[in-house]
Amino acid sequence: MGLDTMKIAVIGAGIGGLAVAQALARRGADVTVFEQASEIAEVGAGLQISPNGARVLDALGLGAELRQRAVMARTVQLCDYRGGEVVRLDLGDTGQGGYHFLHRADLINLLANGARAAGVRIRLLQRIIGVTDGRRPRVELANGAGFDADLVIGADGLHSVVRAALNGPRAPFFTGQVAWRALVPNSAERGPEVRVHMGPIRHVVSYPLRGGSMLNLVAVQERAAWTAESWSQTDDPQSLRAAFGDFCDEVQGMLAAVDKVNLWGLFRHEVARAWHGEGLAILGDAAHPTLPFMAQGACLALEDGWVLAAALDEEGDVAKGLVRYQALRESRARRVVAAASTNAWKYHLAFPPLRWAAHTALRAGGRLAPSRMIRQFDWIYGYNAIDAVGQPVNDG
């Protein structure tokens, strides 16, 4: 069955859902996106699009608009929480292409406009209560209606209805970390760099957005207590300031400007065992939710969307296309998720001699082999989803 004869339902109008919808519609499929919110909007937060994600946006015809809206990142600076640079890395040394700082809402708008221009229908206020697998899968809506399709794609996040249908119900687990996020004015006129202040069991990431007019802040703390997983839960800014009260003056200046802050617990499922059934598939956080410590959640969803559409198109058969999609994507997703899960400890060393030794090693590496330090993640940033369908299936 060619894509030009397929009727496809996508659940969720987030980054992965809108990307796969556009990729499929551009190949001739009849695509409808179901979104439970009343509008396509994102809460105020920033994200990073590294070269692997930008390649997908370029292929979707959205690259020029990405670069118009984004701040192009130039460097990564790791700092001690008490002040002082540990190491500075030039992103130009990677040779992989541009790194982009982007407001999440800007990326969602870009993808939504691209999807609509490709002919995708986006239906709002559509709460999904269940899906049925089979050669003719069905979406069940809370209003009592149903929608039959040739393929149903779950891009519905951590609490995915489609993931549960494929893998059984299982609650995500709390990782022992919470994160605050906020936007503040860039009053210090910070340039286009990521800055990470590393302290005992905590760190703060900051980088500019929207032409450099504001800074995106993400502050992470290890915590034994369970915290509700939610992107919309707010917190008192004073709680954030108290948690990082011993950090340096630069961090205090940024935190003093926070007047609204969201707090969420960092939760994960294991990478899904089954990414597809007979007529169901999942992608993005529904398949492999990842912690934010490699800034790859959005990029993995973009990669998934492109590869799923390309595999279905190349194979010309739903069953073969879905098998190829999981085979191409699973090992890479597992490797990125594992890297993100183990990266936080590097920022959170609490034992002073260990922290001193680690920072000394970072300084030496930055002085003696800066290119090697930044290029250790070439396997992430150099990945090309556009060419992936033609590669061996286990190439992570």
Rank of each mutant, 00 (worst) to 15 (best):
R223Q: 15
A224N: 12
A224V: 11
A225L: 10
A225W: 02
W226T: 15
T227G: 03
T227I: 13
T227W: 03
T227M: 10
A228H: 03
A228V: 11
A228Q: 11
A228K: 11
S230M: 12
W231L: 13
S232K: 14
Q233M: 14
T234G: 06
T234L: 08
T234F: 05
D235N: 14
D235V: 13
D236E: 13
D236W: 01
P237F: 12
P237T: 13
Q238D: 14
Q238E: 14
Q238I: 05
Q238P: 00
S239L: 14
S239D: 14
R241D: 03
R241A: 11
A242F: 00
A242S: 09
A243N: 05
A243R: 03
A243S: 10
A243F: 07
F244T: 07
F244N: 07
G245I: 04
G245P: 01
G245N: 05
G245C: 09
D246I: 01
D246E: 15
D246M: 01
F247P: 04
F247V: 02
C248H: 02
C248D: 08
C248Q: 00
D249Y: 05
Q252S: 04
G253R: 11
M254V: 06
L255V: 01
L255I: 02
L255T: 03
A256I: 07
A257M: 07
V258T: 02
V258K: 05
D259M: 02
D259T: 15
K260D: 09
K260P: 06
K260C: 04
K260L: 05
N262C: 14
L263T: 09
L263V: 12
W264K: 10
G265A: 12
L266E: 03
L266I: 12
L266S: 09
R268D: 12
E270R: 15
E270A: 15
E270H: 12
V271F: 01
A272K: 12
R273E: 15
R273D: 15
R273K: 15
A274G: 03
W275M: 10
H276W: 03
G277Y: 06
G277E: 09
G277V: 11
G277M: 08
G279A: 10
G279K: 04
L280A: 11
L280R: 11
A281W: 06
A281D: 05
I282Q: 05
L283V: 02
L283I: 02
G284A: 11
D285N: 01
D285L: 01
A286S: 06
A286G: 06
A287Q: 08
P289K: 09
P289N: 09
L291G: 02
P292G: 07
P292L: 08
P292N: 06
F293T: 09
F293R: 02
M294E: 06
M294N: 02
M294C: 09
